[in-house]
Design a protein around this nucleic acid. Sequence first.
DNA 1: TTGACATATTGATGACCATCAATATAATGA
DNA 2: TCATTATATTGATGGTCATCAATATGTCAA
Lengths: 108, 108
Amino acid sequence: MNDEALQFAKAMADGTRQEILRQLCCRWLTVNALVLALEGQVRQPTVSHHLGLLENAGLVRVRQRGRHRHYTLNQAHLTSCCGELLRVYAPDYDLAPVRINEEERELT
Amino acid sequence: MNDEALQFAKAMADGTRQEILRQLCCRWLTVNALVLALEGQVRQPTVSHHLGLLENAGLVRVRQRGRHRHYTLNQAHLTSCCGELLRVYAPDYDLAPVRINEEERELT
DNA sequence: TTGACATATTGATGACCATCAATATAATGA
DNA sequence: TCATTATATTGATGGTCATCAATATGTCAA
């Protein structure tokens, strides 16, 4: 069975998680900063719950810095998952999106 | 809000639906043929339910032929949805998978 | 160590949804 | 028309999961 595609789709199949991923795109945020960025949509435990799920799916990366945890979107894995979906469900299409931006963005 | 990406992810976020899409990849099947292909996993009403949902998400195409309905996977739309995901959540990657196989497959 | 802060975990609740049996609708052939 | 076949719809049921308040865990500063 094709389990990675399923886990990926399930992780993406929630509006709050997609919003979280958008907030984490191209920057590192702490949990509290993320809660603030979501402007009262959801409480901190809910955000932590979603972050745990997204981390488990490989869609976010984490860095502990003192008592803070910084999260960011893992574009590489998301791209790989989309590639998998395309390979399986769109064999008549050319696929394999490729990284164009070589430098890694790091926490300052 | 980015609703198409959400509807796509929700449609893909189920094992039975992914199995159905695999069965409908590159061929047209009637509902009953699909039920048979799924080898007793699920009953006909369940298959019809999933097909309705997938059709609503644009992921399958339908043709009525007498009292039969033929379904097939819509690779174009799935590719477009993956492209949307990549555009939003992987801006550092090159995207836009492209059709390589120009002829349309039709029902004989 | 203690107190303050940041995040995770727990347990409860309600909403959504996958599934099924039963039934309805629709189309065909006789 | 009627019987048959193909598919959709309905209504019920159980499971999964998003959310929250409350609490626990962990980390630093003093």
